[in-house]
Amino acid sequence: MKSILFVCLGNICRSPIAEGVARRLIEQEGNGITVDSAGTGSWHIGEAPCRHSIIVARNNGVDISSLRARQVHKNDFQKFDLIVALDQSNYNDLQAMGAKNLVKLGEFGCGGADVPDPYFFDGFEGFDRVFAMIESCVAQLLSERG
């Protein structure tokens, strides 16, 4: 596998965290996999990750502050070897768009669970929980597929 695209809804919280974690782990391993992230929705195009995502990533040694949101495009399905949805809703949307090389991140070490949107938790604790889940699942994904 040479390239991975992580996809959530808006590309401002979960998928940029997954991209940042994957970049850090790939850099540590030196295996040269290309990583990107995108959202199924268009309303955050060009925006930086949300403030809490930047903070939780930085607190865990990952800098995602320079990333900018973009929307997934059908040509991404040929460009990337693996498309990784962060939850079932995004998985379904990507499948409807024609993605074939598609998995759900929670299939890797999280029992198939969705990576929840941290905004559905009260306070910053949700971002800590989501980061920990993403970090664990991305490490497992790279171990199995990298």
Results as ranks from 00 to 15, higher is better:
Cys110Arg: 12
Asp128Thr: 10
Leu94Pro: 08
Met97Arg: 13
Val84Trp: 01
Pro116Val: 03
Phe127Val: 12
Asp76Glu: 04
Asp114His: 06
Asp117Leu: 03
Met133His: 00
Phe124Thr: 00
Met133Arg: 13
Asp122Ser: 12
Phe127Gly: 08
Phe80Ala: 11
Met97Asp: 11
Ser136His: 14
Asn75Phe: 05
Ala132Pro: 01
Val84Ser: 09
Ala99Leu: 05
Phe77Thr: 03
Val84Ile: 14
Lys79Glu: 14
Gly106Met: 10
Tyr119Gly: 12
Ile83Glu: 06
Phe108His: 03
Gly109Arg: 11
Asn101Met: 10
Phe131Lys: 08
Val130Trp: 01
Leu86Asn: 06
Lys100Leu: 09
Arg129Leu: 15
Gly98Arg: 05
Gly111Pro: 05
Phe80Tyr: 15
Val103Ile: 13
Tyr119Asp: 01
Gly109Val: 06
Gly111Tyr: 04
Phe131Glu: 06
Gln78Cys: 00
Ala99Trp: 01
Ala132Arg: 12
Lys100Gly: 13
Asp122Asn: 04
Lys104Gly: 02
Gln78Phe: 11
Leu105Asn: 06
Met133Glu: 11
Phe124Ile: 12
Pro116Asn: 09
Val115His: 03
Ala132Gly: 13
Pro116Glu: 14
Phe80Cys: 08
Lys79Cys: 01
Ala85Phe: 07
Ser136Cys: 11
Phe124Leu: 06
Phe131Val: 07
Met97Val: 10
Phe80Asn: 04
Ser89Cys: 04
Glu135Asn: 15
Phe108Val: 09
Asn75Met: 03
Val115Gln: 00
Tyr119Pro: 04
Asp93Thr: 15
Asp76Trp: 00
Pro116Ala: 11
Ala132Phe: 00
Lys74Ile: 05
Phe124Pro: 00
Gly126Glu: 09
Asp81Lys: 07
Ala96Lys: 14
Gly112His: 03
Asp93His: 07
Tyr119Arg: 08
Cys110Trp: 08
Phe131Asn: 06
Asp87Gly: 10
Lys104Glu: 04
Phe120Pro: 00
Val103Gly: 05
Val115Met: 10
Met133Trp: 00
